[in-house]
Design a binder for these strands. Structure first.
Lengths: 108, 108
DNA sequence: ATTTTTAATCGTATATTCACGATTGATCGA
DNA sequence: TCGATCAATCGTGAATATACGATTAAAAAT
């Protein structure tokens, strides 16, 4: 029995890994995540202060991180409090460590 | 002594993490890496056969993975033998697991 | 009631990504 | 030598990403 291997690119796990990786695929977004890890919680303005980017640009990156499930954003009056999303971070951890161990196993 | 925190986006480690993540940020490229892990070694044509993508598109993705240091490509006559790059994969492993443990530590 | 503050969104410009077919250049086989 | 094979590259089009300033809407402070 010969198996015809065909990789389906719409495999949910593969798609999810790619989505998470894509969200990490910009220095500003990694910096934001690290910042949130340091401060636990941040307003958009705090982040803008620290990064060499315009407020609207930071807002865009926050949106990207949020839609990938890596952070949460709770509106507190006129501000929005951003925070690492534990579930998302755990998923990041498990997904990418699974991938890398799968790869590392057979490295030529 | 008040420390003025400013995150530099050109921090080499951050940039490298982002570069690696970006390379993983497409389902096709993750699929290619998994494939190389299964087969240890692959010609471009092998990959094209298995993915629902044109040869030129696969070649583009391979180029992206190669320039991120995740795979190698050795020309063997008319073919090119692609292979996981152990150093790159190790870097992937260490970089991203470091990041996720840094994030997971302080998750609110 | 008015002004200020905050962050999202809009509009825009430029750059990059992703996909394809066609072409090229190199190598291999006949 | 000639034709076939393979993969990189070119050219292209469409979609996304990245950045910015300006505007908006909501809430807070005056």
């Amino acid at each position: 029995m010969t198996e015809t291997i065909t990789v389906k690119l719409d495999d949910p796990a593969v798609k999810r890994s790619a989505q998470i990786a894509k969200a990490l695929g910009h220095p500003a977004r990694i910096a934001i995540l690290k910042l949130l890890a340091q401060r636990t919680t941040c307003f958009c303005g705090d982040i803008t202060e620290v990064l060499p980017l315009a407020q609207s640009t930071v807002s865009q990156h926050l949106k990207a991180l949020k839609s990938a499930g890596l952070i949460t954003g709770d509106v507190e009056g006129v501000r929005t409090c951003y925070c690492l999303n534990p579930d998302g971070v755990k998923e990041l951890e498990s997904t990418l460590s699974e991938l890398s161990s799968e790869l590392i196993k057979t490295c030529c």
